[in-house]
Design a protein around this nucleic acid. Structure first.
Lengths: 200, 200
DNA sequence: TTCGTCATGTAATGGGTTACATGATTAC
DNA sequence: GTAATCATGTAACCCATTACATGACGAA
């Protein structure tokens, strides 16, 4: 997990550990947070595996709009060719390892670097997974509702609604993917709406 | 975590490992699932600690409406006095250990056995926690929105909405708690609306 | 000069999972 | 008789966390 996240971020630009962690927070948002206690050892493992190198040279880093402008991070890491390959490999995975709870968010965060077909398969995999869960809760609820504590019931129903909401979200995303895969290859991975091309 | 869940369930009725696990699923719903690989060792630890005992005698177990009617579970566990004490202790905790992501659901599931004041403190603690997270995401989003990949943006916004939704849910729960703590002590912990007192 | 935040790391520990192994009982 | 599901367990591992230790640098 952390591995993929690190590879994904370093693919965008070289970074040092500390900033990597804040990028991680900003990228993954509410989904996941990693501590230094896992980040640094991971960085080390990845370096030993040859996926990243310490870019000791100068470090213009990225011109992060405010502050930070000339400062130098101590140990800047960047991807190696092997690391890029490893990233590609991880991003191509379209199985449970990409759509389970703990992993989905990270994979999704790097969809911009993911093959469109893989994106759809992951989204569908996740949706199916959630639909199964939803049915499990629904039938369990149908069987036991009357015997449930009001708090347990609240929990079940809130959980159920959360799942339903995520299913709807996924469905919309899948439809969007489908639509844009039919449209000409025009890259849609940026926020900017597709510039009105010529005339119809 | 598992420990609290096991104590909470066994407080309702004696159960054997296998059924304990299905109850766990039914009780925690979408929030958490435990495997046998953690359940059985936990059961053993708890037995060694003296919180539960193997109730080797006959096992009428619980008359679970369908099927299962006369069957015997191999090793039925039940709470000891120490176990009940431990449960009380755990249910009285109203700190981060009760309102963090991994723990909140389990604590909430046993709110029926929790002191009303503790319930409110946990709900408020969780809400505050989520509000902090929400503000973190909001400000990060305000700073970086324009530079974000459309997927990263989607992820942020979906995460933000999830958090907002849970905050609203908690607020409602807190209000309900407040109202019912003013109402006469009449126990509201069952789903059934309070039977009209007076007429039988 | 002291505080906050940037910055890097380690040691001990935690709390689970996966995969495997085994066997009884029930339903067909 | 055989497949499903009930039932109990172990061993190896994984992926992280917490708490701690250290220190540079800039701003008040």
């Amino acid at each position: 997990m952390l591995e993929l996240a690190v590879l994904g971020l370093l693919h965008e630009s070289p970074l040092h550990g500390y900033e990597l962690r804040s990028r991680l927070k900003a990228t993954l948002g509410t989904f996941r947070a990693f501590s230094y206690g896992s980040l640094y050892p991971t960085l080390r493992r990845m370096r030993d595996a040859g996926w990243i190198v310490e870019d000791e040279g100068d470090a213009e880093v990225v011109a992060d709009a405010p502050v930070l402008t000339g400062r130098r991070g101590k140990v800047v890491y960047k991807l190696t060719a092997d690391g890029k390959e490893r990233l590609t490999e991880l991003l191509a995975e379209a199985g449970p390892s990409a759509w389970e709870d703990e992993t989905f968010g990270v994979h999704f965060a790097f969809f911009g670097q993911t093959d469109p077909e893989v994106r759809v398969r992951i989204l569908e995999g996740r949706r199916t997974r959630l639909e199964e869960r939803r049915e499990g809760v629904r039938s369990s609820l149908a069987r036991t509702r009357s015997r449930l504590d009001r708090y347990t019931l609240q929990l079940q129903e809130h959980g159920l609604e959360s799942v339903e909401r995520e299913v709807r979200w996924l469905t919309e995303l899948i439809e969007t993917e489908r639509r844009s895969s039919q449209a000409p290859a025009e890259e849609l991975s940026r926020t900017t709406p597709p510039t009105e091309r010529g005339a119809p």
